[in-house]
Design a protein around this nucleic acid. Structure first.
Lengths: 109, 109
DNA sequence: ACGTTACATGGCGAAATGGGCATATAGGAA
DNA sequence: TTCCTATATGCCCATTTCGCCATGTAACGT
């Protein structure tokens, strides 16, 4: 039972690692942009409006989590979404946000 | 366009706040347990195996994000899942983990 | 060769997070 | 009242995250 517990902990840790990669506004913005097709780092840097090195690190986080993949072409790197299931993420999060808003308004009214 | 940008940033921040609440192994473990029905803090404390105050704080994070709700009964607090869409989360995360594992094995073999 | 452009990485400080201990609060029992 | 139990909160410390700056690296043009 102890071994099982350990394994279950590892499972949760692995899941949390994915969620962690999604837990930053800039990274969500990047993923959103990549859903429309691959983008180079410079485009994403413009989009996010942060330092290029910052964006590069965000992309490294997403890549490490297995959420995006990259392709080098000459001097540039193009990133793309690697998984197909993110739509469910957005939907769920939007649902939560909507319900929170509703609850908040009920609390006021 | 600047206003739109600001609003879009707020959107991403709100989404990230939800993802952040999901980005911890203990909180995922708690949510998993709550999917089977409401639990009191003491049960969850046993489950997670951390200090009671730590678990209490994790629950506060989940509540703040609107993911769980609580109900007081005498001395005890019972928490329950408040949203219905978490199954999609698990599924998506599991998909990512599976693909990552596959990619890793291909990289080896 | 040199310079430029695109990107990645190291380092540093600031801020956020996490965890346990101690304490506060509050309900129930005696 | 006093004690005990269940939970929440404050405090402190360790760790992590985040952002920018500076620098490294690599491809391309001249």
């Amino acid at each position: 039972m102890k071994a099982r517990n350990l394994q279950s902990r590892k499972r949760y840790a692995a899941r949390a690692a994915i969620a962690k990669a999604l837990a930053h506004p800039s990274r969500l913005m990047i993923l959103d942009a990549l859903e429309a097709g691959e983008r180079c780092v410079c485009e994403l840097t413009d989009l996010v409006g942060a330092d290029q090195s910052t964006v590069s690190k965000h992309l490294a986080v997403l890549k490490q989590a297995g959420l995006v993949a990259d392709r080098k072409e000459g001097v540039m790197s193009f990133y793309r979404v690697k998984v197909c299931c993110l739509a469910g993420f957005w939907k769920c999060i939007e649902t939560v946000l909507t319900e929170n808003l509703k609850a908040h308004q009920e609390a006021l009214g």
